[in-house]
Amino acid sequence: MTSFLSGLLSPGAAKHRATVATVLAVCGVVSLTACGKTIQIGDRKDPSTPAPAPAPATSSALPTTAAPAQGAGNSALQVVDSTARDAGLNGTGGTVVGAAVQETPPKWVQLSAVTSPQLPVAHLININQAALYRFDGDTAAPSQSNCNDACASKWPPVIIKEGGNVYLAGVNPKEVGAIRRQDGQVQVTVGGWPVYRFSGDAGAGDLNGQGVDGKWFAVGPTGQKAVR
């Protein structure tokens, strides 16, 4: 059986440029309602904070809907099983590349599964064709980032504006989630693993972060380590 991903080399592309994958849509007709989902942003919990006391039982026979607690920090994102271009969008959504500082969260991000000459197994890139990574020091269950401050400067998290869209190519929507980081920003997860860029990747197709410190690896479409 052939893989559902196949790299396409553009004419005149550099040898080390990542190649955008050809992807078979999960659904026959791609649409937000048929193939996408809405996800909630989970707060990064401090394990030292005691859990709130359970609400007292009510004797009312009428159903009630509790309003979200103020400051709960949850907000919906839309995960769309199609590309940004399919949605009529151009540009990058506000994402940056390399060591550039992400001043404001992008309005949307795109995760695309590709293969490349350096790494011929499926791994993820963003709309700028920057390789995306996962960190063995994080956890996937529960999803939590342990890369903050200086670490996050070297390994910028893939962040997104609350209420934004995550577009996909070759990634199952069920694998995509989001967490709230220590600094309050919203970070995208795949297979529960928070995903990052690497400041040492200067351009499309670079994979300079692969294997750094034995803990950083390109991330695959289900959150797995993408290794040969």
Rank of each mutant, 00 (worst) to 15 (best):
residue 131 A to M: 05
residue 64 T to Y: 05
residue 45 K to L: 09
residue 133 Y to L: 05
residue 132 L to E: 02
residue 78 Q to D: 05
residue 74 N to D: 04
residue 96 V to F: 00
residue 116 S to C: 09
residue 96 V to W: 00
residue 100 A to V: 09
residue 53 A to W: 00
residue 87 A to G: 07
residue 52 P to D: 02
residue 74 N to Y: 04
residue 53 A to Y: 01
residue 66 A to W: 03
residue 69 A to D: 09
residue 86 D to W: 02
residue 66 A to P: 03
residue 101 V to R: 15
residue 101 V to Y: 10
residue 82 S to R: 15
residue 69 A to G: 04
residue 52 P to C: 00
residue 121 V to T: 14
residue 108 W to Y: 12
residue 90 N to S: 15
residue 94 G to M: 03
residue 45 K to Q: 04
residue 60 S to T: 08
residue 77 L to G: 10
residue 97 V to S: 13
residue 45 K to F: 00
residue 128 N to R: 14
residue 113 A to G: 06
residue 84 A to W: 08
residue 101 V to D: 11
residue 69 A to S: 12
residue 50 P to L: 02
residue 59 S to Y: 08
residue 123 H to P: 00
residue 129 Q to C: 00
residue 68 P to F: 05
residue 44 R to N: 14
residue 88 G to V: 12
residue 39 I to K: 12
residue 57 A to P: 02
residue 69 A to T: 13
residue 41 I to H: 06
residue 43 D to L: 09
residue 94 G to A: 05
residue 76 A to R: 13
residue 107 K to F: 05
residue 59 S to P: 05
residue 76 A to Q: 13
residue 93 G to S: 06
residue 127 I to T: 02
residue 118 Q to R: 07
residue 123 H to S: 07
residue 52 P to M: 01
residue 53 A to F: 03
residue 95 T to P: 06
residue 61 A to S: 13
residue 133 Y to G: 01
residue 101 V to P: 00
residue 132 L to S: 02
residue 130 A to P: 00
residue 133 Y to H: 07
residue 108 W to P: 11
residue 42 G to H: 10
residue 93 G to Q: 06
residue 113 A to Y: 00
residue 59 S to V: 07
residue 47 P to N: 05
residue 116 S to E: 06
residue 93 G to I: 04
residue 118 Q to F: 08
residue 128 N to S: 12
residue 98 G to V: 12
residue 76 A to W: 07
residue 77 L to M: 11
residue 90 N to Y: 11
residue 113 A to D: 03
residue 126 N to V: 01
residue 120 P to D: 11
residue 67 A to F: 04
residue 102 Q to S: 08
residue 40 Q to H: 08
residue 126 N to T: 01
residue 100 A to C: 00
residue 98 G to R: 12
residue 85 R to K: 12
residue 111 L to F: 10
residue 51 A to C: 02
residue 130 A to Y: 02
residue 61 A to E: 07
residue 105 P to C: 01
residue 77 L to K: 13
residue 72 A to E: 14
residue 100 A to F: 04
residue 81 D to R: 15
residue 81 D to G: 15
residue 53 A to P: 06
residue 84 A to G: 08
residue 112 S to A: 15
residue 132 L to H: 00
residue 41 I to R: 11
residue 40 Q to Y: 08
residue 127 I to R: 12
residue 48 S to I: 03
residue 112 S to M: 10
residue 62 L to I: 12
residue 49 T to M: 05
residue 68 P to R: 09
residue 81 D to N: 15
residue 114 V to F: 00
residue 64 T to S: 10
residue 48 S to D: 14
residue 120 P to K: 15
residue 91 G to S: 13
residue 42 G to S: 10
residue 112 S to T: 14
residue 47 P to E: 03
residue 101 V to A: 14
residue 85 R to H: 01
residue 133 Y to T: 04
residue 117 P to D: 15
residue 68 P to G: 03
residue 49 T to R: 06
residue 119 L to R: 09
residue 49 T to K: 10
residue 44 R to H: 07
residue 73 G to K: 12
residue 105 P to I: 01
residue 88 G to N: 09
residue 110 Q to P: 10
residue 119 L to V: 03
residue 48 S to W: 01
residue 56 P to G: 02
residue 73 G to F: 07
residue 62 L to E: 10
residue 40 Q to P: 02
residue 65 T to G: 02
residue 95 T to I: 12
residue 72 A to I: 06
residue 64 T to V: 14
residue 113 A to S: 15
residue 122 A to D: 12
residue 123 H to Y: 11
residue 62 L to H: 06
